[in-house]
Design a protein around this nucleic acid. Sequence first.
DNA 1: ACGAGAACCTGTTTGC
DNA 2: TGCAAACAGGTTCTCG
Length: 277
Amino acid sequence: MPELPEVETVRRGLEPVLKGQVLTHVEQRRPDLRIPFPTGFVGLVEGRRVTQLRRKAKYLLFDLDDGQVLICHLGMSGRMTVLPCGSNQPPERHDHVVFTTEDGGAVVFNDHRRFGLMTLTTRDDEATHPLLVNLAPDPLEPVFDAAHLSERLKGKRTPIKAALLDQRVLSGVGNIYASEALNRSRISPRRLAQSVAGARAARLAPAIVDVLNEAIAAGGSSLRDHRQASGELGYFQHSFRVYDQEGEPCPTPDCHGIIRRIVQANRSTFFCGRCQR
DNA sequence: ACGAGAACCTGTTTGC
DNA sequence: TGCAAACAGGTTCTCG
């Protein structure tokens, strides 16, 4: 899936197409994704105007003009594709939802693995919604800094890599940017989370912020599934220091280590055992 | 209560 | 060549 930079890239691509537009037609092509669509989903959304497109962690939130909020998560393989006005493309395999707007544009949600989801809440209930209530702030929110991060890691005996993937500790970071931020801050992914404090936290927090901002500026990373809403590819994958770079030299100046791949919590981790301690 | 591992689902790549 | 296993950007449940 898209991590925070990819979701933010999608949000920015959808905004000019959807913001201010009435959703004149909504086509829901299967009853469920990771979770069932809400009962009466199409009827609740059709005819509503989209007033804002927001992102919370890796969730896209569409504000509707009647106080509803459409919650969307892209899972591992979800894509949002903007179709040009007037195009009458037949649905493709794994196109699950098609939104058509009053000006004739269309947005397609496609997700072949179906780890994504779409559901509804309201502005009033959003803060307590089960999918959103336990999300920690993301690293681009103003409260995020080294002190905030070490507070969140306090007492955690899981490896720091796993802690960075825990959306209750900090949100928005996924498997790629966790490895990247740890290499930039020269911290071993195997180090216990609680030991990342002080000088280490002071390196890690800005490394996370920087890698996310750089990835957003590049339009995200395009590996297998991710596309911008426009269909264009992001290009941050060309800037990976360690992710998917097993056997390559570590980019840390004067390090000369070799990038290794290990498995933690069933996920690949890429790191340099020489400079990352 | 916490942490590790499996499960969810489909598609593509890798290895024998 | 062909088939099976491994792997893929996430989240959530179960088990110890």
